[in-house]
Design a protein around this nucleic acid. Structure first.
Length: 389
RNA sequence: GGGCGCGUCGCAUAGCGGCAAUUGCAUCUGGCUGUAGACCAGACGCCUUUAUGGCUACGGGGGUUCGAGUCCCUCCGCGCCCA
């Protein structure tokens, strides 16, 4: 148990403010209220989201209270962190539906039932007086100094006053829920610290802040994000998830081990030098196991080795039915939805990317007889069984 | 309110009137491999009788021209500067 509380503040943590204050609270046996903000616009969780969720779980296991804040109000403004995305206002219904899904997914890591869940619209939506008061808690110069605002202005983009208020709004959440500690990624540092400022302004005790690293995506360079297309979703099919983890560049593997698993980091790192593939298989199994169970993870691994390493056929593949018993190959590919246009089909055949029953096809004009069903392969990964309807 | 500028393939960029249109990233295919990673090569609007072929495309609409992403007018959207 002792070593646990050490790990709590150190493992996979970038920075804690105020660290000594937090240590004192823990040493005094205080049960903390640990705040974590959720964006209701993207219910699909990926491994990047799992990093803070795991940390929250650790706090939960140590007996602390997790307080989840669903930013239905702040989502309407859009967090100006990072790039400017178009932000469609979500209806209440959409938020509810998204959150149901989110909490179900988060439940694979966190014990959601034991956590408090709040919508920040509850205290921000109707209270103009609070909002006015809030706009005094921060200053223009302060906001302008924030790194990514500055960057955006320098790049010739604009920032609305409302966006500038974003950090204050979400900082007020800390007042509303009496947070002792807030957890977030490095990109959230400014926002997290604003929580402290707002709490001070409203005369309540200031929260501590724990900053966690951002996880790189499958490209190993940029942070994992849906818009970069480098994410590994936690609801993805086990085999897909397994394959994606295997494709992550080797040098970020230690980080994955540290942030996403309980595997011994230094030991694994040593092994990585000699047997990278083995370490990655182990990692992939641990992560897939976390969401799908160990048994499924083992199956996924076997499947990966069979299909990818040994270039075999997958044990299961989608089935497509086409209209006719005999079809020109191009129409066949199109009808089976393996390509999106005839031009693409021709191109793929030209490039030698199309196989039928394991045989490479090079004539784009031939007519294929379906018979009792054929196995069509496009590229390395796309398999499909085609039958006559 | 005044002055200036910008809107081109998923994103980003190039484009003295002859353009299916440059380059980078992403994507896809092939090769190679411990991997679906890296690296190398190629492809990347659609359709076809594959052709010095047809059609559709450069924010919307109109115009000039044999010919317009490129010039002109106008509308929409975005930005900068001054007030």
């Amino acid at each position: 148990m002792k070593s646990d509380s050490n790990q709590l503040l150190t493992k996979g943590v970038v920075e804690i403010l105020e660290e000594t204050h937090l240590q004192k609270m823990l040493a005094g046996g205080k049960k903390l209220r640990v705040k974590f903000g959720i964006d209701p616009t993207s219910p699909d969780l990926h491994l990047g989201h799992v990093v803070p969720l795991r940390k929250l779980r650790q706090f939960q296991d140590a007996g602390h209270k997790i307080v989840l804040i669903i930013g239905d109000f702040t989502a309407r403004i859009g967090d100006p962190t990072g790039r400017s995305e178009e932000r469609k206002p979500l209806s209440e219904k959409e938020v509810k539906a998204n959150m149901k899904k989110y909490l179900a997914e988060a439940g694979k890591v966190l014990n959601v039932k034991k956590a408090e869940v709040h919508y920040n619209g509850k205290w921000l939506n109707k209270n103009l007086a609070t909002v006015i008061e809030l706009s005094r808690a921060g200053s223009i110069s302060q906001v302008l100094h924030r790194a990514d605002f500055k960057k955006r202005l320098d790049e010739g983009h604009d920032i609305t006053l409302l966006e500038a208020m974003y950090p204050l709004f979400q900082g007020y959440d800390s007042v509303a829920v009496k947070a002792d500690l807030e957890i977030g990624g490095t990109d959230q540092k400014f926002n997290l610290l604003m929580g402290r400022r707002v709490q001070r302004y409203f005369g309540t005790p200031e929260q501590d802040v724990m900053i966690l690293p951002l996880l790189e995506g499958t490209d190993g360079v940029r942070k994992m994000s849906k818009s970069f297309g480098n994410y590994i979703g936690i609801s993805e099919a086990p085999e897909i998830m397994f394959g994606k983890i295997m494709s992550v560049p080797d040098d970020v593997i230690p980080k994955y081990i540290l942030l996403l698993t309980d595997l011994p980091v230094t030991e694994m790192e040593k092994k990585l030098a000699g047997d990278p593939r083995g370490v990655k298989l182990e990692l992939a199994q641990a992560i897939v196991g976390m969401f799908h169970g160990l048994k499924v993870a083992k199956q996924a691994q076997a499947e990966f080795i069979r299909v990818v390493s040994n270039k075999g056929m997958p044990s299961e593949m989608p089935v497509s039915a086409v209209r006719s018993q005999r079809l020109p190959i191009i129409d066949l590919l199109l009808e089976a939805r393996l390509v999106s246009s005839k031009s693409e089909a021709r191109r793929l055949i030209m490039q030698g990317g199309v196989k039928i029953n394991g045989e490479k096809q090079s004539d784009d004009k031939q007519v294929i007889v379906i018979g009792k069903g054929i196995i069509v392969q496009v590229g390395k990964m796309k398999y499909c069984k085609v039958v006559h309807r």
